[in-house]
Amino acid sequence: MSDFAMSDDDLEQMYQEVILEASKRPHGKEKFAADLTQEDGGSDSTADTTVRASHEYCMPGESHQFNPTCGDQVTVHVEVSKDDPKKIERLVWDGSGCSISTASLSMMVDLVEGKTVDEAMRLEGIFQKLMKSRGAGLDDDEDAEAIGDAVVFQGVSKYPMRIKCALLGWAGLKDSLAKALATK
């Protein structure tokens, strides 16, 4: 039994519902990347759209991630302020995947948009720790509070094949931030 007097099955059901809801109405999803699932690379006119930094005070970075195990793919686009402390001014993504990868991306956007790069990397580290917990969750209440609703991925961490789905967007975030910071 948990602190909320719920059985493990009840918690698992609640986690599944939160993940499904987040995947149905994903935050930060925009159509901007070429559809790489099409044989011709998605050569229609909408697929050629590229997101650019909309402000001269931002440094853009973009990363495409692909999970060959299940076919999930995402392109993460970030715009980081040039002034210190570096702040995530805009975070959007485009892609396709299972409910776990979509929900994780949506919650990631909610967690890190508007935060400094250092804060975002701290949250990424906490999420990594959660995914390595194999269902045990986080020991630190402060860490659990920091990642908010993303704590529901504790249930996902029991399934090694699903962990990659949950981490796909976070890998894209790290890479796109590195690219943005390298442009200074």
Rank of each mutant, 00 (worst) to 15 (best):
Ala182Asp: 08
Gly42Leu: 14
Gln38His: 03
Leu130Phe: 08
Lys129Ala: 12
Tyr159Met: 04
Lys115Cys: 13
Ile88Ala: 05
Asp110Ser: 12
Arg162Trp: 07
Ala34Gln: 10
His64Asp: 11
Ser2Met: 06
Asp35Met: 08
Glu21Pro: 02
Gly97Thr: 05
Gly172Gln: 02
Lys129Pro: 07
Leu138Asp: 05
Val152Cys: 09
Ile88Tyr: 02
Lys184His: 06
Ser157Gly: 03
Glu113Gln: 15
Cys98Arg: 03
Ala180Gln: 00
Leu173Cys: 10
Lys82Arg: 15
Ile88Ser: 03
Phe127Ser: 08
Val74Ser: 06
Ser104Thr: 10
Asp44Glu: 12
Gly155Pro: 05
Ile100Arg: 01
Asp139Ala: 13
Glu17Val: 06
Val51Ala: 13
Leu123Ala: 13
Asp48Ile: 12
Ala171Trp: 04
Glu119Leu: 08
Ala47Lys: 01
Pro60Gly: 10
Ala103Leu: 07
Lys184Glu: 08
Glu119Ile: 09
Ala47Cys: 14
Tyr159Gly: 00
Thr50Asp: 07
Thr37Ala: 12
Asp141Ser: 11
Lys129His: 12
Asp40Ala: 04
Ser43Thr: 14
Asp94Met: 05
Cys98Gln: 09
Gly155Ile: 07
Arg134Leu: 07
Gly114Arg: 02
Glu79Asn: 09
Lys158Met: 13
Cys58Thr: 13
Ala53Trp: 00
Gly172Thr: 05
Thr46Val: 14
Asp94Glu: 05
Ala166Cys: 02
Lys132Phe: 10
Arg122Thr: 14
Thr116Arg: 08
Ile88Gly: 02
Thr75Leu: 01
Cys98Phe: 13
Ala22Lys: 09
Thr183Gly: 06
Glu119Cys: 09
Val151Met: 12
Phe127Glu: 06
Met6Ile: 01
Leu167Asp: 05
Ile147Phe: 01
Asp8Pro: 06
Ile126Thr: 03
Val152Arg: 01
Ala22Cys: 07
Lys174His: 10
Thr49Ala: 13
Ser101Gln: 01
Gln13Asp: 07
Asp44Cys: 15
His55Gly: 12
Asp48Ser: 15
Lys129Tyr: 08
Met1Lys: 03
Cys70Trp: 04
Gly28Pro: 07
Ala171Gln: 12
Ser106Gly: 10
Lys179Leu: 07
Asp110Met: 06
Ser43Lys: 15
Thr46Ala: 15
Leu91Cys: 11
Arg122Leu: 13
Ala166Asp: 05
Leu20Phe: 08
Lys86Cys: 11
Ser23Lys: 01
Ala5Asn: 12
Gly95Pro: 04
Ala180His: 00
Ser133Ala: 11
Trp170Lys: 04
Lys132His: 10
Cys98Leu: 12
Phe66Asp: 09
Asp118Gln: 14
Ile19Arg: 05
Gly71Val: 13
His77Gln: 03
Leu173Pro: 03
Tyr57Lys: 14
Lys184Tyr: 04
Arg122Glu: 14
Ala182Cys: 02
Pro85Ala: 09
Lys86Tyr: 15
Gln128Glu: 12
Met1Gln: 05
His64Leu: 13
Met1Ile: 06
Ser96Lys: 04
Asp35Arg: 09
Ser101Asn: 02
Gln38Phe: 07
Ala22Arg: 08
Glu30Gly: 04
Gly41Leu: 11
Cys98Trp: 09
